[in-house]
Design a protein around this nucleic acid. Structure first.
Lengths: 339, 339
DNA sequence: TATTGTGCTGAAAACGTTTTTATGTTATTT
DNA sequence: AAATAACATAAAAACGTTTTCAGCACAATA
């Protein structure tokens, strides 16, 4: 690589290195003629500053990093896209690191390649890592973990409220017997959604039959099987509605219901979470709960930049979600129960 | 940021800077005791090497960059995921830059932050940029642009063959009157698909009515409208099959056909391109042509790494695609035309 | 004319590493 | 026992920048 350095430009222009640097960085101390001459030479030589040298000296990268173990799924591309847009607006570059190797991540974080970072968990950044980041005053925002200290914060979805709102919506349609297709019990969001659902039921004094909690593991197939076997075992207590832990579960559920001869939404309402792309194209189009992913991306970058530039403290932000009404739920007019 | 540097470690361990460096980098020249002592001190101080200093000196980053204007859509996450996996296997980190600012991109590329790069076009990297990259011996692989020189190559999908194969498949089902819903005429892939389709028709001496080429712009709505107005204008020559430029167009097409009273696939076959996630969930499930995206990601990284490590030349690789048979096409038994 | 002030530019230090070369010690050979 | 080889460590140079400070013209002041 026959790189042209600042030295070459200096020699070629017949000035010193510092003069070149000043010209390039708009330090207002040079004669207009000197400056324009230097710039002309730099352009002629196709000079591009070496970032490593630059950063080594200045310590600022104007780069934010997003660290994640995966980018699979619509969640990530919406998130990354919105973060990138916000970064651009604020004059930062965004840098996505996809790796499962914690060592790589930590050395990039602490090695000074980015001014701040966004972290999507799963990779077990433990207390010790957090502590050493805190000690070094690393600015970071977490996406699915609650952290709140001097230099680190979180922007998360309030899944409890989401679950609560969803259940409440089904109740408002007149449903009484609402089953839940649970996700993965080790995931925070999954648990929160279920808790929210349970809270809504409790609040309305609806029966909370243990049989009404199925295990769907956030998967279509597992949910299909769970619903199918439930229907066969419990002819006597078919629910009015199913609230599924995510849209895939809802789809599996609907397929199971159809194959057992039920119509959705005429006979039974089904509601999901996430509003995945498929949701609107499915038959029936899925009523679901949508997280404000793009909003999360925007907020996370804003928060990070404020911590960097204005030395603001880290804080916890919770995002509400919105119900997307489509065609998989139906108003239930139930004469005996009406006022 | 109270950063601990190599100097601090040296002082604390009572040895010189170079000894610390050698210990950390496994240069086999130190007494085991010295080495382990230094490592112990380094760990105790929580020392993490500054990457900028490191890179400045060594010139190697062990990082590959992916430069793109957007990551929206399933294509990107499959691609990025597979690139990341391959990078990990080969001992590189992957770094995704999402920006529309060509300046940022060029300065990162030429500024020495990555050892090599993958470029997704749209951002108009012009001949001048390419030339300066070539001069500096930058290693790069392009994803949707044909480049082949000393240090740069491409891995692209052979859309011409894909279009040809798709049309041929429809012909093999017995269809004679095959309409095409065109995409965006300025996009390379779009044009290639259509050319392939036309070639297949020509080869089988099927009629190539200009009216059979509709404009769908790769959009659902536009395709819906195009098909709808076609059907209303040309009752006399309804096609046996539609080949749509992408799956969204196919979906729009099917909706239009249904709303005009045609059944798919019983009356008319419809085929798409891309195999987007929705395709399998749509009713009817879409028969389509799938690109080997994950394969592309793998190949592109391999190629890049071979250019970097083994000084191989850049080359052009074309990826074939595969037909995914689902439920939107039907065998047409046409008595009058059979042998 | 001698002094001070002003405006540009250049020299040199610094950033945190790696790598090359130098130095000093101990072991080996003659 | 002297010369040499082998080894372990230290010192210094280098990577490409930015930045601080010194220096030099020249004009303005006394």
């Amino acid at each position: 690589m026959a790189k042209v350095t600042i030295k070459d430009v200096a020699r070629e222009a017949g000035v010193s290195i510092s003069t070149v640097s000043n010209a390039l960085n708009d330090v207002d101390v040079l004669t207009p003629e000197t400056k324009s001459h230097v710039l002309k030479v730099a352009k002629r030589l196709n000079y591009v500053p070496n970032l490593n040298g630059k950063l080594l000296k200045s310590g600022k990268t104007n780069m934010l990093g997003f660290f994640t173990t995966s980018v699979k799924g619509a969640y990530f591309y919406i998130l990354v896209e919105s973060m990138a847009r916000e970064c651009e607006r604020l004059g930062y570059g965004l840098n996505v690191f996809v790796t499962k190797d914690k060592q790589v991540i930590m050395s990039n974080i602490l090695g000074g390649r980015v001014d701040g970072l966004v972290i999507y968990e799963e990779l077990k950044i433990d207390e010790h890592d957090i502590a050493s980041m805190e000690k070094d005053k690393i600015k970071a925002v977490f996406l699915d973990r609650v952290i709140e200290n001097e230099t680190m914060g979180s922007v998360i979805f309030d899944s409890y409220v989401a679950g609560y709102d969803a259940a409440k919506y089904l109740i408002s349609l007149g449903h009484k017997k609402i089953a839940y297709i649970s996700g993965v019990d080790t995931m925070f969001d999954s648990v929160q959604r279920k808790e929210g659902y349970l809270a809504a039921l409790r609040e309305h004094q609806l029966e909370m039959d243990q049989d009404y909690i199925l295990q769907g593991y956030f998967e279509e197939e597992a949910s299909y099987n769970a619903v199918k076997s439930f229907l066969r075992m419990h002819h006597d207590k078919v629910p009015d509605a199913f609230l599924a832990g995510n849209d895939l579960s809802a789809i599996g559920c609907i397929r199971a219901l159809k194959s057992e001869g039920y119509r959705v939404p005429e006979d039974i309402s089904v509601m999901g979470f996430d509003d995945i792309e498929i949701a609107q194209y499915f038959t029936p189009p899925l009523t679901t709960v949508r997280n404000q992913i793009a909003r999360q991306g925007m907020l996370v970058i804003d928060h990070l930049v404020r911590m960097i530039q204005r030395k603001e403290q880290g804080k916890l932000q919770k995002l509400s979600s919105e119900i997307v009404v489509r065609g998989s739920c139906h108003i239930k007019l139930n004469r005996d129960d009406s006022i």
